[in-house]
Design a protein around this nucleic acid. Sequence first.
DNA 1: TGCTCACATCAAAAACTTTTGATGTGAGGT
DNA 2: ACCTCACATCAAAAGTTTTTGATGTGAGCA
Lengths: 103, 103
Amino acid sequence: MTIYQEQAKVFKALCDPKRLAILEQLRSGEKCACVLQELLDLTQSGLSYHMKILCDSGIVSSRQEGKWTHYRLSSSGREKAVELLKKLTTPEAEQGSACGCRR
Amino acid sequence: MTIYQEQAKVFKALCDPKRLAILEQLRSGEKCACVLQELLDLTQSGLSYHMKILCDSGIVSSRQEGKWTHYRLSSSGREKAVELLKKLTTPEAEQGSACGCRR
DNA sequence: TGCTCACATCAAAAACTTTTGATGTGAGGT
DNA sequence: ACCTCACATCAAAAGTTTTTGATGTGAGCA
């Protein structure tokens, strides 16, 4: 896997409308799989597929409680994603605390 | 087009390895199409296809100079993308300047 | 132990994206 | 006016992702 494919993973997680709808639900707090499935009208295996992609990307984390799986937004995942996005789209000279001084 | 599809557009731009390689080239400064094509060993129509996606997403902007097209990173595009990413992945309660006070 | 429920995994089909090679378009030079 | 160069657009093929329905797995309860 190239570095570009590795970096692309978190953005792939964000580029499907159903996954964005899942994230919107998680913004209001932790939800278990069966609740998400019902709220978003997804099939069971469809939800499972999308949750795997979201968790693998790091922006969602999960917690088991008996038979149930609860999902929530991960703040460390968010921070990593934001940093990566900035890194990929900021000109070299401007990175870090851009100062503009000559030295 | 749903709001989710609209929001997904900027992340779609970021989730292809060739487009990430193009962004990396643009980080060191504006480049014209023919230079990018040569540096990244892409076909002419292939480059054109990817540049359209990058420009449509807002993270790259272009400038004509006679027959040549020059591409560069757009700082407003970057800022919008970062804001959108934060918005999509931050719990409702935490948004804005999170304070934690009771009122 | 055996049953059920919640979720994961699988394989095939459907939907989408990217690549390729051909052709279109418009700026600039002769 | 005509030619060439730089890039855009197109349509078909190749590749990838998503959906679907079936089956697997492991926790908890009778």
